[in-house]
Design a protein around this nucleic acid. Structure first.
Lengths: 167, 167
DNA sequence: TTAAACTTTCAAAACTTATTGAAAGTTTAT
DNA sequence: ATAAACTTTCAATAAGTTTTGAAAGTTTAA
């Protein structure tokens, strides 16, 4: 496999994986492209490499910036803007964890808390409902606090600790 | 909020959350419904509660069974089949982790390994490519091994260990 | 073996989400 | 102030996904 093939395969794979961590294909592909580019790329560069329209590129770049994993840069003497991605994988993982917590887990916890607080009328179905939604709340809450710790500490310490535990 | 409202809100929330852990809305809603039902439900019951068609119900129930989080049961003297979900939240989490590893992480690891093994021709772009895809491989691999441990050990041990670390 | 009860399949339709591209907006150099 | 260079917006459209429902298939009881 040569560089071109490997690059395309990587972009492709990362792109379809994107839908899974909650972002769309173009967004994930743009990220993949920037992630492996030693140099910042312009919007034009991205459009050409991925064969996507100007509008699409613009919108998805903005979203990536919003997620905090792509940065705008500029070159001296050039009016055009250039884009580059977070290259540190730990920083990337942190950022993704942070955003997912904020966008998904927190709102879910809120609903779970709300619905598990209905009054217990003593019937089976209500008792089961309260029990199960409370259990889910606890699970989501534990998962979230683990993630937040990973995010807020030096993640390296935790990774190493994990690895020791898991060896 | 009364039981009916709380139930609908829960099913609704869990349903839209589904897309995020990689399953579709109907599938997630069916799961939610079974998860809070003290009794197994028939296909008819599910159809009525969620207002979805027979075909849709059938297909999604099958998929849930395939994921290992819903079981078929039958009542003596009844021809109809009944369905019930895994009620133990730890078991549910395990099962989901297991499936995600199998369906998503493993195939990704395979691609990452493959593309990061191209020959280094000494150019910047190839060096960057190899470096970054290797780093991603390592990250995904660490995440996967953590998940698998959680899955394969008594998950309680790890949860407790986590919580101690994180306090 | 038949027929009723039930489940699965799958092509077509409905719905949802992503993408385009041209127009509007913004910034910068002169 | 103007115009060129560039970016953003958004309505229309394309692409992709989910859902339906009727027909085909299966199982069970008599």
């Amino acid at each position: 496999m040569n560089y071109k093939e490997a690059k395309d395969k990587f972009i492709q794979t990362w792109g379809s994986l994107g839908t899974l961590w909650g972002i769309n294909k173009a967004m994930a592909q743009i990220h993949a492209l920037l992630f492996i580019s030693p140099e910042p790329l312009s919007m034009e560069d991205v459009m050409e490499e991925l064969h996507i329209s100007r509008g699409n590129t613009s919108m998805n770049l903005r979203q990536l910036i919003d997620w905090g994993i792509v940065y705008k840069t500029s070159k001296v003497g050039e009016r055009k803007e250039y884009f580059t991605s977070e290259k540190d994988i730990n920083e990337l993982a942190k950022q993704i964890a942070r955003e997912r917590s904020r966008r998904e887990i927190q709102p879910t916890l809120k609903v779970l808390k709300e619905v598990s607080s209905i009054e217990d009328d003593g019937t089976d179905k209500v008792k089961e409902f309260i029990k199960q939604t409370k259990a889910l709340h606890e699970l989501a809450s534990t998962a979230d606090s683990i993630m937040n710790r990973v995010v807020n500490q030096e993640s390296n310490w935790l990774t190493k600790t994990f690895m020791k535990l898991l060896k």
